[in-house]
Design a protein around this nucleic acid. Structure first.
Lengths: 124, 124
DNA sequence: ATTGACCTTTACGGAAACGTCAACTATTCG
DNA sequence: CGAATAGTTGACGTTTCCGTAAAGGTCAAT
């Protein structure tokens, strides 16, 4: 047992709604590094988890560079004190950014919803 | 009285933290259209309000094209029924997108904060 | 009249994040 | 075995959002 599932690039595309080109690009940028059987890529559960992270990161406006940095931070748990402080700092920065972004989003939602009501309220 | 305040492009840059290049670009893209005294741009309060909208739109991940569309919708209040329905529909789409984005942001914040705690918890 | 600050237009440049061929290879199905 | 299907690596193209000169106009102050 324990036959750690593997997925083809096509499987990944279907599952996540991304193109193969994008996956290869992420690999070029070192965001994921699937195994190879010969030249063919084989994605593991871990790769899937990372991809999910990547895509969510993108949706919240992180650059691929940001995402790579955070994923790398996740990977190395063996930090020394100074490094760990930097890690925390970088993460905290992103958290702060995201919180501000949430404020902006709420404001935009409110404004749009207000406008929608206003338009709806016009008699035809 | 009623001397409707005007702002130079430099004023706008200072007030909003954008470059003049950006403002001219937005004008090219028809997101704002300040008056001219000769060739010099004069921004009104309305222009300021629009710019605030633009910048917040950007921060929440809208493209300039999206923003232009929404601003244009705001402008024409004189719609007919079918047009109004489309307006509402387009706005609602954006609202839905933003709500999903907020979910993503919350998830990402949680994950990052969890990770921060984890890193902090390591004894040095 | 000259300097300096601020403004103008036009135009080329550039990173980010892929899309889109092209030209092969590897595997599989009938 | 031969065609179809899925995968591979470049290499160049595309869109968005401005940055960055280049080359000069305007106006107040010295």
């Amino acid at each position: 047992m324990l036959a750690a599932k593997q997925y083809s690039i096509g499987d990944m595309c279907d599952a996540f709604g991304v193109t193969a080109r994008a996956l290869r690009f992420y690999e070029d940028e070192q965001l994921i590094s699937p195994e190879r059987r010969g030249t063919t890529r084989l994605y593991s559960e871990r790769d899937r988890a990372r991809l999910a992270w990547i895509l969510r990161g993108k949706r919240v406006g992180l650059s691929l560079a940001d995402i790579k940095e955070l994923l790398d931070l996740y990977d190395v748990g063996d930090n020394r004190r100074t490094q760990r402080l930097k890690t925390v700092e970088r993460c905290q920065d992103q958290v702060d950014r995201l919180k501000q972004q949430r404020v902006d989003i709420d404001a935009t939602i409110n404004e749009l919803e207000g406008f929608i009501e206003l338009v709806k309220a016009q008699e035809s």
